[in-house]
Design a protein around this nucleic acid. Structure first.
Length: 314
DNA sequence: AAAGAGGAAAATC
DNA sequence: GATTTTCCTCTTT
């Protein structure tokens, strides 16, 4: 197994002229266009020059173990780059092998982190082979949402994870001509991640990059099996500003005040999680309002639109 | 127009 | 039985 080298993520094939926004949820994963520590691919996509600019300085100061925030990432646009740019990374810049490895593990760490985050959010296993048809549907919806892919409808319904993994890129494209290729590439990354995880750490799902060990293992207190509550879900999103800061974010973390920046997207994520495709902010907000009398969430003293407050922070 | 409040009832576990 | 979803009316921003 595991022969699949993660294909570079194509940027979301949005409308013509659309570029990836800085701070797009997929920005970190986009960095996967840097070759991962896998055997070579014949047709490796071009490495845009931009990522080097933000990756390189962080190599100069290995003390700064924190990965660069996507908000500071320049727009990554691999569409314009031709297939010729690939080796420029090594050719034009005297990057030491060691440094390159650091870049790779940094990128890889980001990818694995994003996958872990998604697993928790969706409540699915990391290994696609373990997915039920329901899990597959969730993953597709989530990926579709995360990368603004065109709607797929039910073209992948009733497929188990194992069946999905066995499908070729062509088969993906048959089911979804619009973005089967991108989906397949994403699944490829998940497959590789699961494979590497298995190989590297048979014990815990932990990954450390360079000096910084910035992954906590199974510290979270999500009671297994119990259906998740909306307030828990919101806290989970708030915990990952890197991934969801564009949708929901703290205004005052200490006081538990948060703002929903994109009500439609938050509702959609909640709907994916709960298998409620018709979820919208109207209904989600009604659920939040149920928390008023229960003393879980309230409106802050100075009431503002889309701003709520956890009664008991921490 | 979108967000907010809250009653009522169905759905879901 | 508690929580959430759905639907609804009315008010506020």
């Amino acid at each position: 197994p595991g022969s699949a080298a993660p294909a570079a993520l194509a940027p979301p094939p949005g409308p013509p002229g659309t570029r990836w926004q800085p701070g797009h949820p997929g920005a970190a994963t986009a960095a996967a266009t840097v070759p991962l520590p896998h055997p070579h691919r014949s047709a490796r996509p071009a490495v845009p020059r931009q990522p080097v600019q933000w990756l390189y300085p962080s190599l100069e100061a290995p003390g700064a173990s924190l990965p660069p925030e996507p908000e500071q990432c320049p727009v990554i646009d691999s569409q314009g780059a031709g297939p010729a740019g690939t080796l420029d990374l090594v050719g034009s810049l005297p990057v030491e092998e060691r440094s390159l490895e650091q870049v790779q593990s940094l990128v890889l760490g980001e990818v694995l982190k994003d996958i872990e985050t998604a697993c928790k959010l969706l409540n699915i296993a990391a290994d696609p082979a373990d997915w039920s048809p329901g899990n597959v549907q969730k993953w597709i919806l989530w990926t579709e949402h995360q990368y603004r892919l065109p709607q797929l409808g039910k073209s992948f319904q009733e497929l188990s994870g194992r069946e999905l993994c066995a499908m070729s890129e062509q088969q993906f494209c048959e089911r979804s001509p619009a973005c089967g290729d991108v989906l397949h590439a994403h699944l490829d990354i998940w497959k590789s991640a699961a494979w590497m995880k298995e190989k590297a750490a048979p014990g815990a799902g932990r990954y450390c990059a360079g000096d910084g060990a910035w992954t906590d293992s199974e510290v979270d207190s999500s009671c297994a099996g119990q259906p998740i509550h909306l307030w828990q879900f919101l806290k989970e999103l708030l915990l990952k500003p890197h991934n969801y800061g564009r949708f929901i974010r703290w205004l005052n973390k200490e006081k538990g005040i948060f703002k929903i920046e994109d009500s439609a997207q938050v509702a959609r994520l909640w709907g994916i999680r709960k298998n409620r495709p018709a979820m919208n902010y109207d209904k989600l907000s009604r659920s939040i309002r149920q928390y008023y009398k229960k003393g879980i969430i309230r409106k802050p003293d100075i009431s503002q639109r889309l701003v709520y407050q956890f009664v008991h922070p921490l």
